[in-house]
């Protein structure tokens, strides 16, 4: 009976909800033996408003309590407001992932292990397509946490994006995966 509690927060339009749905779909549809529950801030928030989503991944037949239990195992923040609001809600031995372009490292002091993933920078400068930052973050999440198999993640990306953009998003996913795994290695060496 193992549960992993994940919280993702930022502004609407940054891909918070999409990322949470990708993690949930990868766990439910593409990987045997685990399931997931995704919940999200639901209301009048549109682009620009504060926004959050939660995912619980578990190997149980049915996930009982559907919300992420605080302190969470994995916290991903994409705005300084989110970093400020949720920095106290991650476990000491948990994982905190952020994008240094939207959250200044000194503004995000947590006891958990921190991983800076420059997804926005890579998406704009290397891949010349800002929306791919989601696939980069998704890859980095898998590289860092190891919660989902790399191949399951790949299948999920194929499922999620319009057919025209599969190649570029898969490229972004691989870049994210690479960064995530590298950050993980650096930390253990």
């Amino acid at each position: 009976m193992t549960r992993t509690e994940i919280k993702i927060a930022g502004y609407g339009g940054q891909g918070v909800i999409t990322l949470s749905k990708m993690i949930a779909a990868a766990a439910i549809l593409h990987q045997e033996g685990i399931t997931a529950t995704q919940t999200e801030a639901y209301g009048a928030q549109a682009r620009g408003g504060a926004c959050w989503a939660e995912v619980v991944i578990s190997d149980e037949e049915m996930i009982d309590y559907p919300r992420a239990i605080v302190p969470v195992d994995v916290l991903m923040v994409f705005s300084e407001e989110a970093a400020r609001n949720y920095k106290g809600e991650v476990k000491k031995d948990g994982i905190a992932i952020f994008d240094p372009l939207t959250v200044r490292p000194r503004k995000f002091k947590v006891k958990a292990k921190r991983y800076a993933v420059p997804a926005n920078q890579i998406a704009t400068e290397e891949l010349k397509m800002p929306v791919t930052q989601n696939a980069i973050m998704f890859g980095a999440f898998i590289g860092i946490t190891g919660l989902i198999d790399e191949e399951s993640g790949r299948q999920c990306v194929r499922d999620f994006v319009p057919s025209k953009f599969i190649d570029i998003n898969l490229k972004a996913y691989e870049r994210g995966l690479e960064i995530g795994k590298k950050l993980k290695e650096e930390e253990s060496s």
Binding site: K21, A24, I28, T35, A36, T37, Q38, T39, E40, Y42, I63, P66
Partner: peptide, 10 residues
Amino acid sequence: DSWLGHIHEE
């Protein structure tokens, strides 16, 4: 309810 109606699950 509004929570259950918007939960995403298997």
